[in-house]
């Protein structure tokens, strides 16, 4: 496949995010409240989150360095005007997803106090530190959308 350094780097970030944070998300969602008490659930979630963050940093450093080492010239690593346009365009997509997630989280926080509406997703799930995870998952989805849009633009030779 004919790929520039930036495209390879984006593929790596997408796959690493999907695998590492996907695994973390599954581990949090399937936590069994019958087996663990709330404090233990938070402890396990924080331990898994710490491991996920550490792992993604290590994976990114090692593999991005390997990709950079395999690149032909400095221009490819720095990127050109088309790379910058693609980055801007995909950042915009990620921003929309992040904004929607933040608005949903704010709504979830504000509605019970302002309008007295008891709409709590929190009670329907076993996810510990629900509001933090809502924001975290929003951020992860925004990143996945951003990387996917970037790859789509690279694959279509378009901006």
């Amino acid at each position: 496949m004919n790929m520039s350094f930036k495209e390879k780097s984006t593929w790596l970030s997408l796959v690493a995010t999907l695998l590492i944070f996907g695994d973390y998300a599954i581990s949090v969602v399937i936590m069994d409240a019958n087996v663990l008490n709330p404090d233990e659930m938070i402890e396990v979630a924080m331990h898994n989150l710490g491991s996920a963050v550490l792992l993604i940093i290590i994976v990114e450093i090692i593999f991005q360095s390997l990709i950079a080492a395999g690149s032909r010239n400095k221009m490819e690593i720095d990127g050109d005007e088309r790379d910058r346009l693609i980055t801007l365009s995909s950042n915009n997509s990620g921003y929309w997803v992040l904004s929607i997630g933040v608005i949903i989280t704010l709504g979830h926080l504000i509605l019970p106090y302002v309008f007295g509406i008891e709409f709590s997703l929190e009670e329907r799930t076993n996810i510990p530190m629900f509001k933090m995870h809502l924001l975290l998952f929003t951020f992860i989805v925004a990143e996945i959308v951003r990387f996917s849009h970037q790859i789509y633009l690279y694959r279509n030779d378009a901006v």
Binding site: M3, K6, M75, E76, G79, E81, D157, A158
Partner: peptide
Amino acid sequence: QDLAERVGVTRQTIMAIEKGKYSP
């Protein structure tokens, strides 16, 4: 690749320009 190096862009950008998919 040669043209890309002389112009200061990536080879993929030259390819996209030639295909008419990207306006420089």
